[in-house]
């Protein structure tokens, strides 16, 4: 495959999956600017290894996993430089300003951010990226049963949070 063909192939893949991958990473990290940077970096790496990535059974899962790995690496680097919160505790952070606030329903965003990091990742891969349990388990390096348990807990927590808010809204 020539470079021109590879570029067309990659461009088609990027256009077809970039939004979905960005949304998945956004749900995982909670900040749109950060998610965009991570996804861009992951796609750049995908292009750099396109011969391999294009043959991956789920290239968009490769991109999201690369972005999430970069997020962890970035957090570790920054932790050595300035004090920043553990991404696993980012759910306790107040909502950030920026495009996310205006584009994502603040109630859902708040409920997602209250989930533990691993549960957010499972929600991102299962619900946003629409991966099956086995692929999600492979991407996250955990057992399929653990994926199902995380998803069950995440949905239960989201249901509880969102129903509470809806009930309060109906009362007021």
């Amino acid at each position: 495959m020539g470079v021109g063909t590879q570029q067309l192939d990659f461009a088609e893949f990027y256009r077809g999956t970039a939004d979905e991958c960005l949304r998945a990473v956004l749900v995982s990290v909670g900040d749109q600017d950060t998610a965009q940077e991570l996804v861009d970096e992951a796609y750049a790496r995908a292009w750099a290894s396109w011969r391999t990535v294009s043959r991956h059974p789920a290239p968009k899962a490769w991109v999201v996993r690369t972005a999430l790995n970069a997020s962890i690496s970035r957090w570790r680097r920054r932790r050595r430089e300035v004090p920043v919160p553990d991404p696993a505790k980012v759910a306790d952070l107040p909502a950030t300003s920026g495009p996310l606030v205006s584009l994502v329903d603040p109630r859902i965003k708040a409920a997602l951010l209250r989930l533990p990091a691993r549960q957010r990742q499972v929600v991102a891969l299962r619900l946003i990226l629409d991966l099956d349990t086995a692929r999600t388990a492979e991407v996250l390096g955990i057992a399929p049963g653990t994926v199902m348990a995380h998803l069950g807990r995440a949905l239960a927590a989201l249901r509880h949070d969102l129903q509470s808010e809806l009930t309060q809204e109906n009362r007021s």
Partner: peptide, 26 residues
Amino acid sequence: MVRESVADIHSATPVAQIISQGRAVR
């Protein structure tokens, strides 16, 4: 509801920029 909450999020980076960044990585 979760899916729809992020449905308006779109990647803002042109593919040419990604390819250029990827070439530097490569």
